[in-house]
Structures are given as C-alpha cells and as structure tokens.
Design a binder for these strands. Sequence first.
DNA 1: CAGTGGTCTAGACCACGAG
DNA 2: TCGTGGTCTAGACCACTGT
Lengths: 263, 263
Amino acid sequence: MVRRNVTLARQAAQEIIEGIQSGGLAGDDGLLPSEAVLSRRLGVSRATLREALSQLEHGGLIVRRHGIGTFLASRQPLVESGVEELESIETLARRTGVEIHMGDCDVQERPASVEEASALGVPAASQVLVVERVMMSQERPIAFLVDVLPTEFLTLQDLGTSFRGSVLDFILERGTPALQHSYTEINAEAASSDLAKRLQLRTGAPLLRFVAQLYETHGRVVDYSISYFRPGQFRFHVVRRVRQFPMSAFEGSAPDSALVHAR
Amino acid sequence: MVRRNVTLARQAAQEIIEGIQSGGLAGDDGLLPSEAVLSRRLGVSRATLREALSQLEHGGLIVRRHGIGTFLASRQPLVESGVEELESIETLARRTGVEIHMGDCDVQERPASVEEASALGVPAASQVLVVERVMMSQERPIAFLVDVLPTEFLTLQDLGTSFRGSVLDFILERGTPALQHSYTEINAEAASSDLAKRLQLRTGAPLLRFVAQLYETHGRVVDYSISYFRPGQFRFHVVRRVRQFPMSAFEGSAPDSALVHAR
DNA sequence: CAGTGGTCTAGACCACGAG
DNA sequence: TCGTGGTCTAGACCACTGT
C-alpha cells in the first residue's frame, strides 16, 4: 500500500480528478460510474471511495443524487475562493490568475497591546512581531494586512529577505508550527483617514474587514490578523448549509441521561 | 431500532449532548470517555460513534486530539452564527437574545429582470415574487433584505398574513421545497441614497452585503437574495480550514489516467 | 509500553428515483 | 422491480501521545 503521508481516500479522490480531466471518466451528461464500480476500479472499499467522493463534493466538483448517481457539478472549477478555505490572498490571486505583489511593508517587534495580548492568549505586553503591508495589483493597492504574532512563533530574523507578503504562506512553507484553522469575523468598515491614504481611497470608503485568529494543532493562537479588502477586487463566497445541528440544545434544561451512569 | 427519520449517528450525538448537559459525561478537565467506551455505552459501532463525534466537532462543541482523547471545546456554545450555517437573521437574532421585527415591507409579483432571471436560472422575464423589507431592532433599522423567487416556489397568496420577515423560515416551516444549501457572496458596499434612507444612515456609509442563491435538493435555485447589514449589529464568523484539497488540479494538463480504461 | 484517535475493509441492509 | 447512493456494523491495523 503506497502511502505518502496521505490517506487512501485522498489518493482515490486525486485519481478521480485525473480521470475527469482526461475526459473519459464522466459520461456526456456528466454522470460518473456508480460507487460500486468506482471502488472496484480503484481497488478500495466502498467506505473509502465514499470518503473520497465526499471530499470532492465538499470541494464543489461533484453532486450526488440519492437513487440516481454522481454527477459533475454544473458550476465547474470555481475560479474564486470559498471563504471557508484558509489561503493567503497571494495564493488566491495566483490561483485566479491575478498578478499581485507587496507594496509598502513595515515590520517591528514590540510589546503587545491589551487587545492583541487578549486575542493571542498571551500575557499582557508580551513581545510580538507586527507585520503591516499593502498588497498591490497592477500598481493599485487592493488590500491592507496586519499580522500580529508572538515572537515565540515568528521573529524579525525568521522573516529575513524571502518574505513576499503572506505570513500564512511563510509558516506553511516553513512547516512549523502545524496550522489547524482560523476563526474569522467578517464585517464592513469605513476607511479611516490613515487607511484611506494607504489604499488610495477617500476617507469613509467601504472596506471588507476580516479579523482572524489562526490556531495551531495544539489550540494555541499563532497569529492575530486584521485584513482590509477593497470591495470588487476579490470575490469571497461561502457555501451555507441548512442548519443540521441544534446547538441550541445547550440552552434548555438538562434531562438526566442514562448515559453517564451506564456500566 | 428506533428511527424517527433521523440517523443513528445524529441520535448518538444528541445523547452525548445530553450527557454533557447533565454534567456527568465529561471529566473535570473536559475529557470525554474514549471512542471505544462511548460506542459500547451507546450501543453503536465505532464508525457510527465517530460520525456523531464528527458532527459535534464540526459544530464546535468538542475537540479531538490524536493519541490523547476527546475534550469539550474551551470556547463553549457559540452565541453567534457561523456564516457557513444557513439561518435567517430572525432565527439568529432569537438565538442570541436580540429582539427583532419586520419594518416596512413591500411584496410584489413582476417579470424578472435579466440579472434576476440569470441568477435564478429561469427564462428571461419569468414571473417572480419580490419581497423587500427592513428589519428592525429596538426601533432602529439594522438590515435591508430583498428576496426574489420564481412564483413556482412562492406566490403572494402563499405568504398570506403569517409572514414575519424571513423567506427562509417560511419555506422551512412549510417544508417544501426541500432546501439544500446557499451559495453566498460576501462583500462591502457603500449605501446608495435610497438604501441610506431606508436604513437611516448617511449616503456612502459602509454596509456588509450578502448576495445568495438558495438551492433545493434537485439543484434548482429557489431564491435569489441580496442582504445589507449595518456593521456592528451582527457578528458573522467563519471557521477557515487550511486548504486540504488541490482544486487547482483542474488547471494543469490532463495526464492520461488508467482509471478510465480499466476493466 | 498502553491507550487514544485515525484509517480502512468487507459485507449488509435501507431509502430513493426511474422505468 | 432494479440500480443508485445513504447508513451501519464488526473487526483490523496504523499513528500519535504520554509514561
């Protein structure tokens, strides 16, 4: 069993993608072979094959219809980023064919403000690295990004000269710490006069703002960031699913459960 | 096997929630019993138990650590909405304890505009129901919502007098059509003079804008909506995960795959 | 090392949709 | 009725973590 630190399901998904690319896997109507057939061809169990299909479905490449079959999604390869995928705007831009580069950049180490320390979960006034920069596309500013990280995770000399604008990409390429997910708040905000100058907008112009905490696998916050985007330059979307799970269950009274007393 | 049109995994998840609520399932450190123990207690296979835990993990209630165990999440029941969950702002508001009600409301049937017909995937100038209204909280406008639906799905008399402001809730309560997900674009926009008047803001004030297509289970678009939110009144967040799947695979050349020729 | 969660299998039955 | 995807099981082995 060949295993490159990657699951069998992921490998199966990749093979299906290649089969679709080469044009022979899906029928003219976009219908893929049944799960039974696919699992046999790929030499994996149906459970594993289904996991692979779930990944493809989640990525929006296929659609599954109970009792009918699995189809290619009509809205084919998305050229924009789903906001639930965490990727740098540099990666996003490259993927969508937009030229992008870093403009003015300011990096400094200083004690964290109260808000920053709180967001990072570190003691007040801990030393942090602050990276502020403008991202440009075709000589026009399109985003202003601020990243704040404990010096435990990133220092001035770490960044060196290879920094191209994305703290996320930098950490991913370095490979440590291992990143898990980010918790991002989405809002709109009027440009302050300082922000307006940096982004060459009029004061008060609307900006899309993401405030994010980036977590590593052990639950610590690696990076607290605030990002401002010029509307219209990027397209962020999200697939919202009908609520499947009643979190409100936590609000009501607590019925005694046999579970906790069993065995 | 008791089955109320609900999966075993969901029932198991519910039982675990109740066990947590009653306070006896998790240890003082938030550690839950191991998967082997839980599956035995609940009388389900470990695969099913894991599916239940996955749902709870996705909902942010628990955290799983490889080689260590399953814990209650430290950031307990979220009081705000994850944007990847589709729920009406009325439901969201009620859940978070904010009073909300519908202000001015205008409903009409008319032929769809070109943009609307395109977004809905219906012939140009098809008859659609358009619902426009302002949502208020404490006598202040906080959102302006426009929903456009083919009359096939919703008509003026359907709405009747029980409409309280949420098209989504109305359809969910009616039970038909069965909704699947929505595709939502997120952006910021300056308030037009018309919008400013409705929301009692100055022209040009920043607004958070969601443009969404709501899909039913067969892939048809049920509702095309544009929503404007006053910043600061709601908190939208999203959990962004590090990219796990290379959609960019679709861009490169197409290596010939053995898959399509097999068998 | 022992115990945990992560992955995978082979097989079974159910629920759905179309002929 | 048939073939599809959806759910579930019992058992196996792997990978990670702390002792």
